[in-house]
Write a protein that binds this DNA or RNA. Structure first.
Lengths: 195, 195
DNA sequence: CGAAAATTTGACATGACTCAACTGGAGTGG
DNA sequence: CCACTCCAGTTGAGTCATGTCAAATTTTCG
């Protein structure tokens, strides 16, 4: 079942991974199951774990003063969850993370992640690769957010993340894009018509 | 003069830095001076260097199909410049980077950066610290972009980056925030009045 | 089937954009 | 030192994209 993580790890590294190393990883990371709507992280908490999703889907969001949720990040299988700011700075998070579906997650603490990175070259490579991919992806998102109108951001999103379109309802995606569900609904009507 | 970089490096690492190590770094990184308006990187080029700014200011931006510039990133002393996507993927960049003022930059190639990271623990720590800080900062920017109206984004910006407010004209900052210069002008009028 | 969640639709309000004109430096050259 | 130009910033009028609110409709799922 954690095979999924093994495949992920080896796909992101060039160094081979021995059986002992893998056992070491499995002895360190803990599998936890989150039921739908269960919190992975709540506003005010410090993010002590990062999690690799084996199955399921989660969302990270902020609630503003008016009580509106703003989706910061969506994650499904083979993605990680956690609040990087809280995790690295050890400060209380301003975000919530919860399970949108029942979700299996492999958890790792910061200390364990450092130990694994030091002990296992493949693991270290993976960690670096994740950060690289993440920074590139988020850079694109900033670009889209500041320079594109709603419909273009949506087309962009569908192109970049077709998996997520299937997985989350429109009002969640609208929030992720920084628009209202009504606007997304209208945008889609045109989008579908014109292909 | 490169003392500035030495201070920066040591401030971001816990490991001490020997004189030989420092000499090694200085022998590897190259100082280049960019005159105002000179390109550091042009759309279509592959980003072969990252640069640490010793003095001056640069901007990274995209030009859309209508010819409008969208500021992706602003950098001054003690910040880095470069397009992470092009740099890591070795793909042609969609961005331009140019000098807003005459700017002194310490350049490093990807290969050299890896060599230095492997050879010098302090350097490696610095590189990791940069990425951490960067991802946290950009995460906040996404949050602002998708969940705040123009005036709040500006207040936010002034709070987070007072140095940049001094350094760049308003139309540049407006573009960075994803609004027009006219809107920023109006927003500021209220902002100044109300404190 | 029934309730809750998601989506769509319409009418209206508003924030932000566009375009154009005007003002006010900052730098440059005669 | 003035005249000139370039660039930045402001302002106003009109438009457009998106948000708000409320209701109707469709889908999902227990």
């Amino acid at each position: 079942m954690s095979e999924r993580f093994r495949n992920y790890l080896t796909s992101l590294s060039t160094t081979p991974l021995s059986e002992e190393q893998w056992d070491h990883i499995m002895a360190t990371m803990r599998l936890k199951i989150f039921r739908k709507k269960q919190y992975f992280l709540q506003e005010g908490d410090i993010c002590k774990y990062f999690g690799f999703i084996i199955s399921g889907a989660m969302r990270q969001y902020r609630v503003d003063d008016k009580g509106v949720e703003h989706i910061i990040r969506l994650s499904v299988e083979d993605w990680w969850v956690g609040d990087r700011e809280s995790w690295t700075m050890l400060t209380p998070s301003i975000y919530n993370i919860d399970a949108w579906e029942n979700t299996e997650v492999l958890l790792v603490t910061k200390a364990d992640l450092l130990r694994l990175s030091n002990a296992i070259p493949a693991y270290d490579e993976m960690v670096r690769a994740i950060i690289e991919k993440y920074t590139i992806a988020i850079q694109k998102r900033v670009n889209a957010a500041i320079s594109m109108p709603a419909h273009m951001r949506y087309e962009n999103f569908v192109r970049e993340y077709p998996q997520l379109v299937q997985r989350f309802p429109q009002h969640i995606i609208a929030s992720y894009l920084g628009i209202t569900k009504e606007t997304l609904s209208r945008v889609r009507k045109l989008y579908i018509k014109q292909g």
